[in-house]
């Protein structure tokens, strides 16, 4: 599983490795991951770190804990720890993402939980955006002190804490209660897919392993993750194929096999469906983008295209990527 995650300071493959059920996120000393990226979709996943998303451009639909909301430029969303979330966009979008290290929190003062979103123009969105921009300004300063960063992180969390109390879409309480056996079954299936996508895996196999009927499994999977199991399986394979396509080393026919497609034609069909382009075209889009191509190691590790934080700041300041 490769949800987008990239910080400009550091990237090690462990940072995005899948360990069982969810994305592992690693942190620098700052205890905050902040990155911007362009993306078209992100398969269902969850992680321990709470996450705040700011939509820089485009619009998308975000599915969190079985609820779907539409977000547009200027909107924000907060996703608490361990909530399954996925996103999808028809037009493409760019996001600024902040992930908070669990180290920031304390037994007596836990991390904010639940899910909420904030629509552009509202007072709440304005306050959060201002906090995010301050954070960004700080991160982009040279030689900024650790304590200054830490102070700004807590200022942002304080603001979030207040706003979350006012407008939770999924409260922290609800999340706990819904963490049922059924959801556990699906989380296990997702984990299985994430681990064994390269093998000839079918929905029937997954249902059998989960000890539920095929139809019940399919319904449940859709309910929990927002996707049908076959869609999810294909998305994982497509997502796995993308970084390989960006690498110049592997022939395209080998890539299909490496990520579990029975043959190249299946990969072709999946790419057309989920990306609107063929694998060949996807590979060339990457190659033709000089900014993107410039730093091979960083970009081949993720299916998404990273965006410079300075550009994100510009968009936040002016609403446009053009100077």
């Amino acid at each position: 599983m490769q949800p987008f995650r990239l910080d400009s300071a550091q990237l090690d493959n462990q940072g995005i490795a899948t360990a069982g059920t969810c994305e592992l996120i690693s942190y620098d000393s700052a205890q905050l991951n902040m990155f911007a990226a362009e993306l078209s979709y992100c398969q269902p996943h969850w992680h321990e770190a709470p996450e705040l998303i700011y939509v820089l451009s485009g619009d998308l639909s975000l599915t969190v804990h079985q609820q779907e909301v539409k977000l547009a430029a200027g909107d924000l969303a907060f996703i608490g720890a361990d909530l399954i979330h996925a996103l999808e966009t028809q037009t493409g979008c760019t996001l600024l993402t902040l992930q908070f290290s669990p180290v920031l929190f304390h037994d007596t003062h836990p991390l904010p939980a639940g899910f909420a979103f904030f629509t552009a123009g509202q007072v709440a969105a304005g306050q959060l955006t201002a906090q995010c921009l301050s954070m960004l300004e700080l991160v982009l300063q040279e030689g900024v002190s650790f304590f200054a960063l830490q102070a700004q992180i807590y200022a942002l969390l304080a603001c979030l804490e207040v706003l979350l109390v006012r407008q939770p879409l999924i409260s922290a309480m609800t999340v706990g209660a819904a963490d049922s056996r059924e959801e556990m079954v699906i989380r296990q299936s997702i984990a299985r897919i994430n681990e064994t996508f390269a093998e000839p895996l079918t929905v029937a196999d997954l249902a059998e392993q989960a000890h539920v009927s095929y139809s019940h499994f399919s319904r449940l999977f859709k309910k929990v993750s927002g996707y049908s199991p076959s869609d999810y399986l294909t998305m994982v394979r497509v997502n796995q194929a993308k970084p390989l396509l960006k690498s110049m080393q592997i022939p395209i026919t080998d890539i299909a096999g490496k990520v579990g497609f029975a043959e190249h034609r299946a990969m072709l069909a999946a790419f057309k469906k989920y990306c609107g382009v063929t694998p060949t075209e996807y590979r060339k889009q990457y190659y033709a983008d000089f900014d993107w191509r410039a730093d091979d190691e960083r970009v081949t590790a993720t299916p998404n295209k990273p965006l410079a934080l300075s550009l994100a700041r510009q968009i936040m300041r002016t609403g446009s990527a053009k100077p």
Binding site: T253, H264, R265, R283, K284, F290
Partner: peptide, 22 residues
Amino acid sequence: SMLDRPLDEIIDVAGEQAEVTY
């Protein structure tokens, strides 16, 4: 600035009717 790989392009031009190995 861009690179067309023959194998990739053959796969795209031949389409889903063809079974291409490499």
